[in-house]
Amino acid sequence: MKTLVIIPAYQEARNLPRLFEELGEVPLDFDVVVINDCSTDDTEEVCHRYGIPVVSLPVNLGIGGAVQTGYKYALRNGYDIAVQMDGDGQHDPKFLKLVLSRIHQGYDMCIGSRFIENKGFQSSLTRRAGIKYFSWLIKLLTGQYISDPTSGFRACNRELIRLFANSYPKDYPEPETIVTAIRNNYRITEVPVIMRPRQYGESSITGNMAAYYMVKVTLAVIMAAFAKKNGDGAR
């Protein structure tokens, strides 16, 4: 099955080389595409140097718009499976095989979760509390428990590639897309992965943004739970 690894990247020139090298060591057959979300550093040059295809957006769209571009790329180039991985080095390509195995088994989406075995980077206490809250909210709305709903390490099959290419939330898309997928009767599962703290740069969600994040995502998740099926709820 034709597999694509989508790496949304904004100002990740320092983190990408290590990720590319690690991806090169994975004994699996897959392609990689970087979505350069209008970075002002050398993100694009780094990709060219490593011979990795790069889609450079002329305007900064934010994580959701960048990831959706990746799904459009996957759809147009006939990929059967797409895996999303962060460009900041938090996700270890070692776990690609495990994440992909669930899609091969017939699941529509598989999320790499750091909270099944609770190993590796677990992020701060407040952040974990926030993530737990979203797990609870998603369980309440859909009946399915997802231990790491904010994880950006996830694989999905052709049908979900099509759904996400057509409509994808603009920002903070992870919990919302899970609900959209479950609502449309897609089967989601999780596998344990070990994440690492990011190497360079800072998380975009701190301070006041965290409060905004909680409110915005709560609303988005609730809306997604009641959106029209197969619909444009995430637009």
Binding site: P53, S56, L61
Partner: peptide
């Protein structure tokens, strides 16, 4: 906003296709 997003994505994808 939705239309601009779609256009920006299209431009990015086209640039990559030309490159290839």
């Amino acid at each position: 906003a939705l239309r601009i997003k779609t256009l920006v994505q299209e431009i990015g994808l086209l640039k990559e296709a030309i490159e290839r």
